[in-house]
Computed example of a mutant assay.
Amino acid sequence: MASSKFILIFVCFIIGSLMRSTNAQDPSKLTLEYYSKTCPHAQEIVRTEMECFVRADPRNAALLLRLHFHDCFVQGCDGSVLLDDTEILIGEKQAEQNVNSLKGFDLVDKIKEKLEAECPGVVTCADLLAIAARDAVVLVGGPYWHVPVGRLDAKEASLDLANNDIPTPQQGLLTLISKFWAKGLSATDMVALVGSHTIGFARCANYRDRIYGDFEHTSKYNPSSEAYLNKVKETCPLDSGDDNISAMDYASPAAFDNAFYDQLIRGEGLLNSDQEMWSSVLGSQTADLVNKYWADPGLFFKQFSDSMVKMGNITNPEGGEVRKNCRFVNT
């Protein structure tokens, strides 16, 4: 147990000393009052649109939350994930963890249209995503947090960073921890933020290896696992159905709660990367956090809120602009 903790501390120390300054931030740049005079109804507009989207389909909440997460892990929270490819710019939408997975871009477009009609050229796409992600969580029963705003939209995107920096479902615990640490996020932040999978769905291509490989190893002590495993295999055949989806929290997929952690304790995490937080032999710290968040939903909500603010404060040191259209840089 002690050696496991030492390995984690050592790895995190090395990574922390080498990490890029992607979270370099002047705290005065992001404030709760940033749009109070220039677009006082900005948050109300985002909230109204999100209410319509989530009412139409509760899964839309997970789409906007995932967009914000994938945005912040590449160059900071700068709206770069929203950029379409052009003749002179290669975007991030075709990255391994984004293609066929990220959705909701049309929803962002609709919110942006409303904001531009109210206050043209004022509210950034990066701020739009941060506010929409918070509202998405609240609308399906999760916690509320204040969202500091004032981010700028990137003028560039990075396909390479998207491929390298965004965690993947197949990665092990140390790699996952290192990727969060490289963004200034701790293992505590990681376990809390991954709790967002309580409202997420995963593509068969991202969990096939788990259910036809490691699942039986990590789940064999739980009698209910066999029935669950058979059901998931019906959705995700061994040799087809890459785009078929399954809920990462089968108990309450439309509600933001802490049931996701119970599934990890049962050994029934759908993604290998999720189950690693409980089952890895190096995961004494993360397993302890999983236990705590399952035992105390209030603690989970508090840490999730704090970690979302922390992640949302990762900025792009290159600065940027206020895009008129979230899909393209201004001309």
Rank of each mutant, 00 (worst) to 15 (best):
S246L: 09
S158Q: 06
E156M: 03
I211V: 13
D165G: 00
P143A: 02
E226G: 01
P253M: 05
A227E: 14
P148Q: 02
F256Q: 01
G172D: 15
D274G: 08
W181M: 13
L152S: 09
T175F: 00
C236P: 14
I199V: 15
S252Y: 02
R208V: 11
I177C: 06
S273F: 08
A227N: 09
G150R: 02
Y144V: 08
G269E: 13
S219L: 11
A247S: 14
A205M: 08
C236T: 04
D165N: 11
R210L: 07
V191A: 06
F215E: 05
A227L: 09
E226I: 09
R151E: 08
Y261E: 10
N230W: 01
V191G: 02
N222W: 12
S178V: 06
D160R: 01
C236G: 11
Y207E: 07
N230Q: 15
L229T: 00
D153Y: 04
L238R: 11
W145E: 14
N163P: 12
W145C: 01
P148G: 00
L270K: 00
L173W: 11
Y144A: 10
W145N: 05
I177F: 10
N244R: 05
Q170T: 13
G142H: 06
I265K: 15
T218Y: 15
D165S: 11
A192V: 09
D242F: 05
